[in-house]
Structures are given as structure tokens and as C-alpha cells.
Design a binder for these strands. Structure first.
Lengths: 320, 320
DNA sequence: GGTTGGAATGAAACCGGTTGCACAACCGGT
DNA sequence: ACCGGTTGTGCAACCGGTTTCATTCCAACC
């Protein structure tokens, strides 16, 4: 395996010059640069990332923390982040937890010494816990907003409100909201949005919390039916899928007792069936968050400026 | 940030002794070990992975290559692998591609210089391409078997065959198989299993290839209906979901024109509805594969023995 | 023509661990 | 009392780059 030393020798220059020729060519005469580059090519030189990392104080590794992998909402986010990181030559590693137990916090503390930055998606922990974890290492939140921390979130609240309004306009007078995890920021946002939209205009039953899985959608059917709602809005696409299954199994037709889904590529399929839906571009979310993180990594001086909370608009449609 | 030097100083020993006390305690007197450990704790010492990597020639990073993140089949695998890796103090990074294009191969070539080992899940590339990629770096295949390479695969063929037989026993005489990606090894296994089971006993229409998504399930409904099949077996849970949606939308009841699903936690929900199903424990798959990889990493001498192809049994149920 | 300053380069320190080798202390055996 | 053999420890080299600092060379300037 060719090292920088070999390249330098082959090119007849010192290791220092070879290093500069490869990473900061402007500091070296064009002729020398050409010679070094040529030697590197001939020898099939690939710089050792580990050595670079040790010398540069950077690991070349960033971590994304997600509360669960079960919820397919997070996979496009991961992919978007991964692509963006790869474009900058960085690796992405995954840690799975919600940042809401002492063990989680300790794990993140350790992890923070081993990576250059964090992407923290939908953490369940308290504001101060999350803030503590994000302090001392460049971090960007996803789908959670906390003062003082940069974040990228899907602006689903607006869409959920519109959805509720759409149902009311169509004559529904009793709406059910099947809620997601208790400590989810997005869940709180959505509940508030739906509450605001229905206030004084329609009955609203908030159910939950339910984990964002198909199984819990099935499980929630009973409560939905009991609520007497004619329109249902759920926290997540997976829950909606379960709802539709369960309602069908009970002999209820689904475009009829309308069900709404959010957050997922599955929505594309639901869209085909004429269901109202909200579509979050998770890949974009991940990409943007990683972009922000990379910016912070490359210009560490700009801690000062107020970290931006970026709200990414989502697509939604009321009619099928 | 505390370094080994600080710990050594604090404990009143040399850097070398401190290092040994932490990584090879048997070489150091118990009393000294205790003292060093104590100092490390007090100072909050976390070993610098990069330095360890440089000195040890290991990166402490392993990669899992998956063809897509869209198919939720892979997420439990990733989680299982991640947990197992974390238990050994290794990071897991994700690369997304099917190992079937020149760009993919080049990317993997580069990646192989930056990680200690590969987990390659369901690669689409030819045997020799995959073999070439897995050569020169410890690798374990998941859901793909190739002579000469260690692998861990779900033994779904058996289950698919049983499923088909079950349908036939129940009187179905026309079965449709909605196939997955063309170059998927598992898909080929499953088609063969279903063909063998139906041979001479039932008509069989093989449809596809379809990507493993809900949308393609919806898309496949037309072809399924056209085939006249009264029982449908699909390659993946996501496809089955789409099928059920689409069939329902056409006014067809689903336990009735039976649909089978595979490979997913979603199956749990389907099970609730009485649909026949196959359940693969992806987490176990990922865990086992990572275990095999870790073994290879820790004992590099044993290249010699024939690498084992491990077939993990899957749970399946014909009746609801 | 001597001084000044910038460009190009090399020697060596450094990042933070691991490990081969040397050395001292201490063991039981004869 | 002497010796081969552990055991415990420290020194220094090493992994493969990056970076600081000093040095050399040359063109420009007064």
C-alpha cells in the first residue's frame, strides 16, 4: 500500500511538499504539483483517512441519532444525510435512541468524542437534556426546535391545520386525531395545529399516544370507531396504514370515513387511492440538515450568529 | 480533553503502562491496573479512536451495503448489525447501492480502504463482481449465497413453498406470484420454490419484476386480476400492502382472494387480520451476519476453512 | 548593488495511541 | 549463594499524514 512517503520519494520531493501538493496545491510550484500528482497516480496512492484524521483533529465521521428505525419516516432522512455526507467525503454512522434515558445520554457523550458532529432527529428528551448533548459538538436538530440550537424541521403543522380545515369544509363535524409518541415535538405541533383548526367548528377527539407503527394503527381502530369520528387524521403514515386495514376489516369503507396519512413515501400509494395526504420529503430534510452541519464544521467561527430554525414546507393535498 | 498521557501522569506510570492497563490488563499488576482505571475515570478519559486506529491498523468502522433503504426489509437488519457492532465498540456506516454498476464498484473499492469489513446485503451484481468486491477485505453476505463467501440468509424458500402448498390444499388452482427485483437472489429462490410447489398441481403466473414498494403493489393489481388467480403470493410485505389497497379499491375483498406477505414487521399487523404470512427476523439476520464478520476480524488466520453459508429459518403461518 | 519580501521547499515536531525491546525486581530450585 | 525464568514497567519507535518554522533562492525596489 503506497504511502505519502513513497509518493514523495518517487517524485523526488519531501513528504511535506508531497502533502501540500495534494492538499494545498497553491503553495507548491505547478511543476512540482504535476510531478507529485503523477507519482501518486502511478503508485495508486490513496491517502490514509485515519492518519489524516489524527493529524487534522477530525474523524471524518458524523453521526445521526434517530429514536427508532421502525418508523419508516426516518429512512429517507438517513439516506439524504448519507448522500450529502458522502459528497463531502464523510462517513455517516447511526445511533438509535431517543435521548431520553440516562443510558442514552451517556452513550451520546461517548459518541461525541468519536465523531465530528451530530444530526439529532426527533429527540424525545427534555430541552435541557438535548441542549446539553448538543453542546460541545456541532449539532443540528431535525424535526425538533429548541432555542439556541440550529434545526431543520418539516413544517407539518401548517399542513395538518389545512387538512383539518378541509375536512370541516367538507362537512365533517367530528374528527379524530390519532397521536404519536408522547414526547414527540412534531406530535405536539400537529395536535396544536389540529386543535386550532377545529376550535369552535368541529368536535375533536385526540387519541394516543401510539407508536408510529402499522400495528398500532390497527390497534387504534377501536378507539376511533368509539369516538364516532367521520374523519381521522393520524400522526404517521404507518398508523394510517394500520387504520385503513383495521377499518376495512370491520367492513367500513375507507374513502368514506376519511383517513389521512402523513410523512412517508407510502403516501404516494395512498394518493393513488384518492386519500388526502401530506407528503414530507424526508430525503430533502436529511440533506438540508447535513448541509447545515457541514457548514458549521467548515467554519467553526460562526457559532455566534443566532442558529437558524429552518422550516421546510411540505406538500399536502386535501382532495384525491 | 484528557489523553493517555494525562492519565499516565495522574496515575504515576508511563504512557505504555497506562495503555496496557486499559487494553491488556493481564500484562500489568492488578494494583497498577486499578490505579490507572481510577485515574481514567477521574479524568473522564475516552480513548481517541483515531489514534487507536492509526496505531492498530484498524479503523473501528464497518460498513453495511444495502441496495435500497426504501424497502423496510433492510431496516431491522441494519439495526441488528448496528447493535452487534456497538457491543464490540465498532461504528457502523451505511452505503446504499446494489453493487451492480461500475460507479458502485468504484465506490466500494474506495470504501474498502476506509473500513475494517463489509456486510453486503442482497447485492444485485453478478457473482464474480460481488466476489471481487468482497476479496481483500473481510466480508459477509446477507440474503445472497455465493460459493467461497460466508453468508447469512433467511431461508424463505422453504416457507414460500409451504405457503403455495397450503393454498393448493385449500383448493386454489390458480396462483400468482408478484416478483421482486430481477437480479435479487432471494427473488429467484422464492420463484423456484413456488414453481416447485405448484408444478403439476396448480396454474402459476409469475409477474414482475417489481421494486419492493407499496406503490408497485398497487400497480401490480391489474396484472394480478388479469391473471385470474385466486391466491397471490408477493415478494415483499410492501408489495402486499399495495396489493391489498388496490384490490380493496377495486371492490375485491382480501381475505377471499388471498394475499400473502413476507419479510416485515408489518406482517404482525397483517397477522392480526388473518392473512397468511411469512415473518423474517431481520434484526437477527443482521446480528448474526455482524457476529460472523466480527469473528473474521478478530481471528484473521481462519480464512482457510470453507466459509459457512448460514440459512436462518423463518416463521410462517398459512392459516390466520 | 544591497536590501527586502515573497515563493518554494525541507527538517522535524506533532496528533494520541500501540508495541517491541531492554531492564530491573523477584520467584523457586539446587 | 547462584541462576534461569517470570513479571512488571519504561523508553522510544512507529502508524501516516499535517503543519510550523527555518532556509534558500530570486525578483523587485531604492
Amino acid at each position: 500500500m503506497a504511502t505519502l512517503d513513497h509518493v514523495a520519494q518517487h517524485a523526488g520531493v519531501s513528504k511535506a511538499t508531497a502533502s501540500r501538493a495534494l492538499s494545498k496545491p497553491s503553495l507548491v510550484s505547478p511543476a512540482t504539483v504535476a510531478r507529485v500528482l503523477d507519482s501518486a497516480r502511478v503508485l495508486g496512492f490513496v491517502p490514509n483517512r485515519t492518519a489524516q484524521a489524527l493529524a487534522g483533529g477530525r474523524t471524518g465521521l458524523v453521526a445521526i441519532v434517530v429514536p427508532t428505525l421502525e418508523n419508516s419516516f426516518f429512512t429517507p432522512i438517513i439516506r439524504g444525510a448519507q448522500e450529502q455526507a458522502a459528497a463531502s467525503g464523510l462517513h455517516l454512522t447511526i445511533a438509535v435512541h431517543g435521548l431520553d434515558s440516562p443510558a442514552d445520554i451517556a452513550a451520546l457523550e461517548t459518541l461525541s468524542r468519536q465523531v465530528d458532529g451530530f444530526l439529532i432527529a426527533a429527540p424525545r428528551g427534555d430541552d435541557d437534556v438535548v441542549t446539553a448533548a448538543a453542546t460541545g459538538i456541532p449539532s443540528v436538530l431535525i424535526d425538533r426546535e429548541i432555542d439556541g440550537l440550529p434545526s431543520v424541521s418539516a413544517d407539518t403543522a401548517t399542513a395538518f391545520g389545512e387538512l383539518a380545515r378541509g375536512f370541516i369544509d367538507r362537512g365533517h363535524t367530528s374528527i379524530a386525531f390519532v397521536g404519536g409518541p408522547d414526547r414527540s415535538w412534531q406530535n405536539a405541533q400537529r395536535i396544536t395545529a389540529v386543535q386550532d383548526a377545529t376550535a369552535g367548528r368541529s368536535a375533536l377527539t385526540v387519541l394516543g399516544p401510539y407508536p408510529a407503527t402499522v400495528a398500532s394503527g390497527v390497534e387504534a381502530v377501536e378507539a376511533v370507531v368509539a369516538s364516532g369520528a367521520t374523519a381521522v387524521i393520524s400522526y404517521a403514515a404507518s398508523i394510517s396504514l394500520g387504520l385503513i386495514f383495521g377499518l376495512n376489516a370491520r367492513g367500513l369503507k375507507v374513502p368514506g370515513d376519511v383517513v389521512v396519512s402523513a410523512d412517508d413515501g407510502v403516501v404516494a400509494a395512498l394518493g393513488l387511492l384518492g386519500a388526502p395526504s401530506i407528503e414530507v420529503d424526508g430525503e430533502e430534510l436529511g440533506r438540508l440538515a447535513m448541509q447545515r452541519l457541514l457548514e458549521r464544521l467548515s467554519s467553526p467561527g460562526e457559532h455566534a450568529d443566532a442558529p437558524a430554525k429552518l422550516a421546510v414546507p411540505v406538500r399536502w393535498s386535501v382532495a384525491g
